[in-house]
């Protein structure tokens, strides 16, 4: 895995994303605003992968979307700095120069990310065309990008529509759209969750290779600890809108500190593990930890 620079020594290479105290709230119709993400801080550095891991409702996807301010209904406070430039409160024009150009985004469902009525080539070229790249050059770069993602007959398939591709190929198209503008950072939100396991492995290998070749920073959002183990350098565990633990990937898996992290790791069935080992639930771990903390271990219900 890449070594990267230690935290705080950014600035030599562009593509340093620093999120501090990010809080996201939504206005509810007949109630007070509801906070779904509370004071999350994280950094994405060039050439390094940060995984944001959590279960549903943890706020991991909301955090990713808030960084790019994709949701206009969200009330966002805190700071998101890209190479020192503050993005929270930035104007639409400034944000447009960040989205796609400096930070690429891949979402879970390739069908929802693609326009079914336009050829995939046109969609891959858009991030370039919008920025004034000539059509012919944009087409060549799009074809090269798609080829780099393992689509051998990229030029022939450039005019095809999304429905003519398999799920794994569609996700390659989505990744091509995210990367064709050569962003320094990629945010990938459950990019392989909708894929079958063998296709998932191929797409993960591709993401691994292309982000490494381009020395990109990656923020990878997932619920899958297996993917985290294979892909991430740094891990941030979220629960109910808050960060409960952050650690290097080796440390997190060998010596998790927070009871919730321990619970998550104990709850995952493993394909390489003897099934006589009984899974534990997060609740069991937390109940034990709470009882021990209170000096009431004997009060644990049988």
């Amino acid at each position: 895995m890449s070594q990267g620079t230690p935290l705080g020594q950014a600035g030599t290479r562009p593509g340093f994303l620093e999120v501090s105290d990010l809080t996201v709230a939504y206005q509810q119709r007949h109630a007070a605003t509801r906070e779904v993400v509370h004071q999350v801080s994280l950094a994405v550095q060039p050439g390094r992968r940060t995984a944001l891991v959590g279960e549903s409702g943890s706020g991991k996807s909301v955090t990713a979307r808030a960084i790019l301010q994709l949701d206009t209904a969200a009330h966002i406070t805190g700071s998101v700095k890209l190479d020192g430039q503050e993005l929270i409160g930035a104007g639409r024009k400034d944000l447009r120069q960040v989205r796609g150009a400096r930070i690429g985004l891949v979402l879970q469902d390739p069908l929802a990310s693609l326009n079914p009525t336009m050829p995939i080539g046109w969609q891959i070229m858009q991030p370039l065309v919008i920025r004034g790249v000539k059509k012919k050059a944009a087409k060549q770069r799009g074809i090269d990008m798609l080829r780099a993602l393992g689509v051998a007959d990229a030029a022939e398939r450039f005019g095809d529509f999304p429905h003519q591709f398999s799920g794994g190929m569609r996700q390659r198209v989505v990744i091509a759209i995210a990367l064709v503008g050569e962003p320094q950072i990629l945010i990938a939100d459950e990019p392989t969750t909708a894929l079958d396991v063998r296709v998932q492995a191929q797409v993960l290998d591709l993401l691994d290779r292309v982000t490494r070749e381009r020395d990109m920073g990656v923020l990878f959002i997932t619920h899958d600890l297996g993917i985290v183990a294979g892909f991430a350098d740094d891990v941030i565990v979220m629960r109910r809108g808050e960060v409960v633990e952050r650690a290097g990937v080796m440390e997190l898996f060998s010596a998790p500190r927070h009871p919730y992290t321990k619970g998550l790791l104990g709850a995952v069935p493993r394909v390489d593990m003897d099934p006589s080992h009984r899974l534990v639930s997060v609740e069991e771990i937390e109940r034990d930890a709470a009882a021990i903390a209170a000096g009431l271990a004997e009060a644990v219900e049988p």
Partner: peptide, 13 residues
């Protein structure tokens, strides 16, 4: 079987 991600960084890498 080879494609299943294993939640152990020492194995999967």
């Amino acid at each position: 079987l080879a494609a299943v991600p294993v939640p152990d960084p020492r194995m999967s890498r």
